[in-house]
Amino acid sequence: MEEYKDHIDQELFEQIEAYLLNTLSQEDRSRFEKQLAADPSLQKELDLQRQLLAIATIESFKLDQEATIENPSAGSNPSAIVKPINKWWWAAAAMLVLISGIWYLQSKSVSPQQLANHYFIPDPGLPVTMSSTRQYQFYDGMVSYKEADYDKAISIWKSIAQNNNSSDTVQYFIGVAYLNTDQYNDALQQLLPIAEGKGKWKDKAAWYLAITYLKLNQPKKAANWLKTIPSYPEATELLEELNQSNPEQSP
């Protein structure tokens, strides 16, 4: 029996992948099939990759079913190590979404608020780095934020905001902290300038603005913000849901 290769280089992997996803040109495909016919270890590898592809898609499906796990905030800091508190947080958030999801699927007509509850996962916050003393206050607020003590986080961040020209990051997190405590109008005030700006928090601010407008039963405004972030799969989905459930409703 053939052994599996110790190492598959990126080029070979991508060839097998392209074959399985059927993105090879006719010519490349024939060439690959000839190679396959002549190389039993390649056939074995192909079979293995088929299984890996199957598990990657089916497990993603299960995660997708359980919750809208891909949070729109995953983009902020992809290289950051997810702290245990984050994992705990997401598990809790996922459960909430699951529970609200079941309820939401069972109810026949869906209100904007229900949609908001279904799609809303609070921003998990940023990893707290202990090295930075300059930004001590900001991270002090972040610790409170992660403990879900949003009022304390807001008051700490507000004090930074008053002292100097506050950064987009501070403004953004004050906004999502307001949203997390259901203070929607305050959330709007914070998030609107960020979403209208050009900074790195623009898209996430737009997403949470849309959620805020849904909570305020203003689906049209929510839809307008969702349209600005087509790269978020959730935004597209939510937009479709909105069109289906509230075709003629106006804010």
Partner: peptide, 27 residues
């Protein structure tokens, strides 16, 4: 890890392009 699961999910399950994923993950 979470990052791997996210990327594999977006690419193979949701069929997002590398470009879309790069934008989303700021990479």
């Amino acid at each position: 890890g979470d990052k791997c699961r996210t990327i594999l999910g977006l690419y193979y399950y949701r069929k997002k392009s590398l470009n879309e994923i790069a934008l989303k993950l700021n990479n």
